[in-house]
Amino acid sequence: MNRSPFFCAVDLAERIERAEAQLMSAAAEAARLRRGDDIGFALPVAGGVATFAEDDSPFNKIAGLGFDGVPDAAALDDIERGFADRGAAVQAEVAHLADPAVGALLTDRGYRLTSFENVLGLALDDAYERGTPPGIDVRVCRDDEFDAWLDAVADGFAHPDEQGVPSHEEFPRQVLANAERDFAAAGVVHYIALRDGTVAGGGSLRVTDGVAQLTGAATAPAHRRRGVQTALLSTRLADAAAAGCDIAVVTTQPASKSQQNVQRRGFHLLYTRAILVKQVGPS
């Protein structure tokens, strides 16, 4: 099916970033409930959110800034103090379509550019066709399959394709396991891919306000180049379209194999996020 590229205006970027901020808030709350303590937080800030879940968690960040004014100094002071009290740096992910004053403010406060990530999108309709290569089966992961799902995904993440800008992040297996369980509690659905009956990879999907967030996918190295990623993507897109989503979004490393794969499936680059990090000491 031919799909025309679409223009990403600021209001679309705001909608996607709002969905990301909502996901981080829900995931941080899920982590708090799982742990049963008060180490985590989710602090609203200028239309975005600053979240901390636990040590080394992928949910420790500021997301969604730049679409509802510029954060004031007092709010950033509180956020930076919260991260410092937990021995963590502050990572802010800022879309290039956000208010440029945000980047200037963070730079003035000592944040340094560390990396970039690309946000790509695909317009959906309710006729998106599901397609899987022979021998590949993709379905929603059962609870008793989670460990096998995690093994395949962790194996895939541990052996990334050496193409494009490398990721600035790497997570221990237990941290990844906690994060994925928290994702599930936040409404993320896990999909398992089997190749000839063997677990070959996995992916995930969250639907909110008509936005389908493809929140990660990986294939174990032994099963690559067999259509597993194509099947995972196709199945999730078909389910998202059936759920009424009008857009699917995915985040990739710039010029990576993942970006190349989704662009081959019709995704278009919408915008880039700058990753700005500030090292903070105890207060």
Rank of each mutant, 00 (worst) to 15 (best):
H159T: 10
R236A: 04
E29Q: 14
V175G: 07
T219V: 14
L176Q: 15
L120C: 11
H268I: 12
G47F: 04
T51G: 01
S204F: 01
G121F: 05
A75T: 14
L214V: 13
G216R: 04
P71E: 13
Y271N: 09
Q259I: 05
D239A: 15
V49S: 01
V153K: 00
M1Y: 05
V249D: 02
A212W: 01
S167L: 11
V189R: 10
E117M: 09
A217V: 03
V140Y: 00
E117I: 01
T215I: 09
G266A: 04
E170V: 10
T272V: 14
L194Y: 00
E20G: 13
P166N: 08
P160V: 12
G48I: 09
A84L: 04
D151I: 05
A74K: 08
L232G: 07
P44A: 03
R112S: 12
A101P: 01
P71C: 11
G103L: 10
R181G: 09
F83Q: 07
L205I: 09
I79N: 00
N261F: 05
V189N: 00
S167K: 03
P134F: 01
G131E: 15
R226A: 15
A21F: 09
Q279N: 11
L233P: 08
L120I: 06
E17M: 10
S57A: 13
G47W: 05
A184C: 11
D125R: 00
P160R: 06
I275M: 11
H268G: 13
A274K: 04
I275R: 08
L113E: 14
N261C: 06
F83A: 06
D68P: 03
G201T: 04
R139Y: 13
N261P: 09
A177I: 04
R18T: 13
L106R: 03
R139A: 15
S4L: 14
I136N: 00
A238S: 14
A31K: 01
R173H: 07
T272S: 12
D56H: 01
R195Q: 13
T114L: 15
V277Q: 10
L214F: 08
P5W: 01
D126C: 07
A123D: 10
R181M: 11
A53S: 15
A104N: 02
R35W: 10
Q22A: 12
L23T: 08
A75Q: 12
R265I: 08
G110Y: 01
A222I: 02
T230W: 12
T132I: 06
L122N: 04
V119W: 04
A238W: 02
G40E: 10
I247G: 03
V70L: 07
A212L: 06
A42P: 07
V250S: 03
V102Y: 01
R109F: 07
G110D: 09
V165D: 11
F59G: 06
I275N: 07
D151S: 06
I79Q: 00
A21M: 13
I62T: 04
V175C: 10
S283H: 10
D77C: 03
L214K: 03
A158S: 15
V277E: 13
D246L: 03
P172I: 02
L120Q: 07
A158F: 01
D11E: 15
P166Q: 09
